[in-house]
């Protein structure tokens, strides 16, 4: 069949690839002092300043930690739910209501978590009513905290339903029930059938989505903006803050952060997904 792809492919390049190249190219030129306010010619000073700063690496490590903990918890809980109640998420009321958290945007979820877990939030009020605390200052800091508990919880509440739906669908499409029956016939116990057969099959099918979702959480902006704190920021928040500061000298550093983050994330994605592909 003759296909003339030139015009639509040109549109694809113009709308999907060109903005990316332009943006990254501009950021690179700005970060090297070639263009922009106060540019004095080619310099690696901004790169040295960012890559030599412990704060940048701490920010990157914090983003990675948030993504890793969120995804591990969400995938673990979703897998447990899908394996324990394989039919509940395909028919009946749960099969509808499990979609509802997907209707909540990140900024609203962050606001909800703040009103739930902050010192003056609902859980603190309930604790006071139950006599567990006698004032809001006694309530432990669960938002804007050092460990990013609020950020993790906000993303967990969005990711867990997503993976539950995904696993429940795959449970049916991969005929996991038949696999369990076969494993049981061959003498496996219920736990062995679940952990040695169903979980590896589902995890393998979902691995690329897990990687992409993890990277998405790593670059998250809204929830860390509301629920994070200045001393342990996530990388998107740090980049945007540097870009929007009144000190124009910070702008090249903002672009260095964007580019370094892009390089790290792309390497991570290529490595993880490439390795999975090589395994077949």
């Amino acid at each position: 069949m003759a296909i003339k792809p030139s015009l639509p492919l040109a549109l694809f390049l113009a709308l999907a690839v060109l903005p990316l190249l332009l943006g990254l190219g501009y950021a690179l030129a700005y970060s090297l002092g070639i263009i922009g306010y106060g540019a004095e010619g080619l310099t690696l000073a901004h790169w040295r300043a960012v890559l030599g700063s412990a704060y940048f690496w701490r920010t990157l490590a914090f983003s990675f930690y948030i993504a890793l903990v969120t995804i591990s918890l969400a995938v673990g809980v979703a897998m447990a739910l899908a394996v324990a109640w394989p039919r509940a998420f395909r028919r009946g009321s749960l099969s509808l209501f499990i979609y509802f958290p997907l209707a909540i945007p990140a900024i609203v979820m962050a606001f909800f978590i703040f009103q739930l877990l902050s010192g003056g939030g609902l859980v603190s009020r309930l604790s006071w009513q139950a006599g567990l605390i006698s004032g809001l200052e006694q309530f432990p800091g669960l938002v804007n905290d050092r460990w990013g508990i609020g950020i993790i919880l906000a993303h967990f509440l969005m990711a867990a339903p997503f993976f539950t739906i995904l696993f429940a669908r795959l449970y049916a499409s991969e005929r996991a029930e038949a696999l369990v029956l076969l494993a049981r016939t061959l003498g496996a116990g219920p736990r062995q059938a679940a952990f040695r057969v169903v979980v590896p099959v589902l995890l393998r099918r979902v691995f690329p989505t897990i990687v992409l979702y993890g990277l998405f959480v790593m670059g998250a902006y809204e929830a860390p903006l509301l629920l994070g704190r200045q001393t342990s920021q996530m990388v998107s928040v740090l980049a945007v803050q540097k870009l929007q500061r009144f000190n124009l000298g910070d702008i090249p550093q903002a672009y260095v952060i964007c580019l370094a983050y892009a390089a790290i994330v792309l390497t991570l994605a290529a490595w993880l997904l490439g390795r999975e592909r090589a395994r077949g």
Binding site: L20, G23, G219, A239, A254, V265
Partner: peptide, 17 residues
């Protein structure tokens, strides 16, 4: 290539553009 804006994070793309 189509996945890249999501992998990089839309806000990072916006910062560069």
């Amino acid at each position: 290539l189509a996945y890249l804006p999501y992998v990089l994070a839309p806000v990072v793309l916006a910062a560069c553009l």
